[in-house]
Structures are given as C-alpha cells and as structure tokens.
Amino acid sequence: MLILPDHWTWDFWLVDDDDDRTHLYFLMAPVSLGDPDLRHVNARIGHAVSTDLRDWEFLGEAIGPGPSGAWDDLATWTGSVIRVGDEWQMYYTGVNRAEKGLVQRIGRARSTDLHHWVKDDGFALEADPRWYEQLDLDAWFDLSWRDPWVYFDQAAGEYRMLVTARANAGALDSRGVIGLARSRDLDEWEVLPPITAPGEFGHLEVPQLERIGGRWVLFFSAYEWAHSAARVADGLAVCGTHYLVADDASGPFTLETRQFFSGDPRGELYAGRVHRTRDGGHVFLAFLQYVDGGPFVGGLSDPFPIVVGADGRLGIDRDGDWRAHVPGAVAAARSPESLSALPLG
C-alpha cells in the first residue's frame, strides 16, 4: 500500500524493469491544498518502486507541467509506459492554463532508465472531430481525450493507443467510448473510430487491455455519476472498475455482465489496474478513495489476486479485512476538519 504523508495519490500505471522491480507512476498533489477536488489542476506524475507491489519506495516527481504557454503547462495526468528496444516511452495526458484545463491532449516523454524523463517537443495527439466530441460545455464538462494505454498489437503489426473519449453523437449521458489510434513507428499516429460503442456511460476512464483466460479483457472505470439514465434506473450506478470482453484484440468488445467487476456505492476503490505478475498470474490494484465511508484517503491499495470463475467471469479475491491495513492516523489527518487549518498552496 502506498499512502504518502504530504501528497494525495490517485490514478496510476505500472511497468516491470529487468531487475525484479516494478515501477509505479501515479498522479499526486499536495495535501496542503486542503480540498481534494483541487488536486486535478495541481497534478504531477510521481514515481515509486517495489519488489512485491506492497512496500513502495517513493522517488519523487517523474514528470510535471511544461513551461508557461506549453500545451501541458497546467497539469499532467494519467498515462502508460511501453518499452521500445533500449528506450522507455511514456504517453501521458496534459492540460493547459489558456484553455482552463478543459481540453485534453496526449504527449510523450522518453527515458533510458525509467527514472529520468525528457518530454518530446511538439508531440500532442488530439481528438479527431470526425468521431469524437469536441469541447461543448452544454454537452459535457470537458473535451475528453486522456488516459492513453499504448501497446503493440502482434496480429496487426502496429502500435495501438486506447483513450478515454466521447462519441460526437448520441444521448449526452451515454457517449462514453474508448478511442483508438494506431502507429507503425510511434512517431506518426492515425486517430481511428472508437473501439467500443457508446450506450452505457458518460465516459470510460483509464482503459487497459489484457489477455486473461483466453480472452481479451478491456478494463475501464466510471464514477456513479457517469452512468447513463438507463443504468441509474436499473439500480446499476456504482463507482468502480469494470470490463468488456472480446475474442480478438480489435473487438468487438461487449459487457460480459452489467455488474461491476469492482464497485460499490461508496466508491472505495477506483481507477483499478491489472498487473501481470512475473509468474504469469494477474493481480488488481486500485486508487484508494475512501474507507468505510470515511474522509478522502488518496492512496494506492495492496494487490488483490484476480480469479476466473467457472463461468469465465472475473473476480477479485478479497480474503481478509484489507481495510484494517489502512493507517487510521493518515485517514484522520486528511479529514475535512483537520485540512481546513492547513495553508493553501
């Protein structure tokens, strides 16, 4: 579990190196802001390492906003890392001050050691209006084009990028899709139509594609307020992580069940990631928002083993009372009463 004394942490992504360590990149913002809702426009990308996915060594900031006037000069948000030969490439989300953080783009940084990152000048992938909703505050609160998940598609012989996006037509509360782009060389990208169909959610956040149990599983997350009216009417509007399935990496992807893979009314765990362990298994980690209805925590959970049921459906082994391992003093220190006395900054 990762809970920093001076920073809230939330969305994250992981990658293994050659030395039996897992590198964790995550969004972070100072607790001294006082209000957790302010963390989004103050986000930086933090870095930690671990050998067991439980005990983490915090290494500080990996990537922050660009200089004044840059396309990412306000905040840097969720992304992913891919290895290309002897180089690592991080694709991340950025927003800027001129657009008041309302328009999201995707940028790239490079590293040879997973510790020191250099941003690419001028690389900023944007949503194509042919398929994706542009900024329209009467339709949605932002231009959604974030959370890039980049991987190499062996069958297609090309790199692909999955993106949180919204279709440019349809009911406003159910336009959420996972966008798609492709590249042969990771330098030139072609934005394609979405890989999923709209209909159930306002947005599908932090997408991730994994092969589990002989099928392709596309994970995503949604808050309770980002469900369509139909889901709300059916009593399905919970907060958490869900998945779609397909026999082919290119889809079509469908919901195996309308019930969330990891979800609850309180929204304790969000923005979950699945990590393939070195022995070939899979575990689930998530952004820890709340514990038993308490104040906002802003940390990272311990890993939960993923199990595949007899019917093929995925589940999480939550054996034991995992909540008991959350430092109570940290949660109490981040309560609204205690934070109100902290300086803003």
Rank of each mutant, 00 (worst) to 15 (best):
A310L: 10
I316D: 02
L255R: 15
Y223M: 10
F261T: 02
A167R: 13
D6A: 14
S301H: 00
S301C: 05
G64R: 04
T257K: 11
L38A: 14
G176L: 06
R21T: 09
M28D: 05
D302W: 03
R130E: 13
R166Y: 00
D248F: 03
G280R: 07
D187H: 14
F26W: 01
H115V: 11
D128S: 13
T51V: 13
I45G: 01
W88Q: 06
W88P: 00
A230V: 05
A249W: 00
G179V: 08
C239V: 07
V274L: 08
L114E: 02
A169E: 13
P327V: 09
H116L: 04
G107C: 09
G122M: 10
R273G: 01
A171G: 07
W117R: 05
A246G: 13
R258Q: 11
E205I: 04
Y132T: 01
T51R: 14
P336S: 08
V297W: 00
H325M: 11
V283R: 04
W225R: 14
R97V: 13
D142N: 14
L2V: 08
L38E: 13
D311P: 08
T257I: 01
Y92P: 12
L236F: 03
S144A: 15
M161G: 06
R313A: 06
D173L: 06
N96W: 00
G315V: 02
Q89P: 00
E190P: 00
P36V: 03
W216T: 08
G280T: 10
